[in-house]
Simulated scan of single mutants.
Amino acid sequence: MTFRIRAAHDGDLQPLYEMAKLTGGGFTNLPADRKSLRAKLERSHQAFARIDDGTLTDETFVLVLENVETGDVRGTCQLFTHVGQRFPFYSYRLGNLTQHSKELSRTFRADMLSLSTDLEGCSEVGGLFLHPGERAGGLGMLLARSRYLFIAQHRARFADRILAELRGVIDEAGGSPFWDGLAGRFFGMNFQDADHFNAIHGHQFIADLFPKHPIYTAMLSESARAAIGLPHPSGRAAMRMLENEGFAFENYVDIFDGGPTMTAKTDRVRAICEAKRDTVAAVDGDGGDQALVATGTLAEFRCAYGAVQVGDGGITIDEACADAIDVRPGDAVVHVGRI
Rank of each mutant, 00 (worst) to 15 (best):
S234Q: 14
A224Q: 05
A271P: 04
K212S: 13
Q290G: 12
S234F: 11
A237Q: 14
P233N: 08
Y216A: 15
E245P: 03
E243P: 04
E274C: 10
G246E: 10
G235R: 08
D289G: 12
A238T: 05
S221W: 10
G288V: 01
V293A: 04
E243I: 06
L242W: 02
T217W: 00
V293W: 01
R236E: 15
V269N: 02
D208V: 10
S221G: 15
V293F: 00
C273A: 11
F256I: 07
S223N: 13
L230C: 12
P231N: 06
T266L: 13
P214N: 10
E274D: 14
G288S: 07
G235L: 09
M241V: 07
I272S: 01
M239P: 06
V283P: 03
A291T: 06
T217D: 02
D254C: 01
V253R: 00
G229Q: 05
D286S: 13
V280A: 03
P214G: 09
S234G: 08
P260W: 00
I228M: 02
H201N: 14
R236I: 12
V308F: 03
I200K: 14
A294M: 04
Y252C: 06
A199V: 06
N251W: 03
A294Y: 02
I215Y: 03
F301A: 00
A218R: 13
V280H: 02
K276T: 07
I272R: 01
V308R: 01
R240D: 12
A281S: 13
G287C: 08
P211T: 05
A248Y: 12
E245A: 07
V253K: 00
Q204S: 14
P231H: 08
D289V: 09
A294Q: 03
L220F: 03
A271E: 11
F210N: 07
D289Y: 07
I206N: 02
R225H: 11
R277C: 11
T297P: 08
T295S: 15
L242M: 07
I272D: 01
A271N: 05
A271S: 15
T217C: 07
S221D: 15
M262P: 01
A264Q: 04
G287F: 00
P214W: 06
D208F: 11
N244H: 13
G246S: 11
D284K: 02
M239T: 10
H203G: 06
F249R: 07
T266Y: 04
G258N: 00
R268H: 11
A307M: 02
K212F: 06
R302H: 05
A281H: 09
M241Y: 08
D267P: 07
G296E: 06
A264V: 09
M241S: 04
G287K: 05
G229E: 02
A238M: 09
N198F: 15
A218D: 14
K265N: 13
A307I: 00
Q290E: 12
G285A: 08
A218E: 14
N244C: 09
V293Q: 01
T297V: 09
V308C: 03
A248G: 11
A304Y: 07
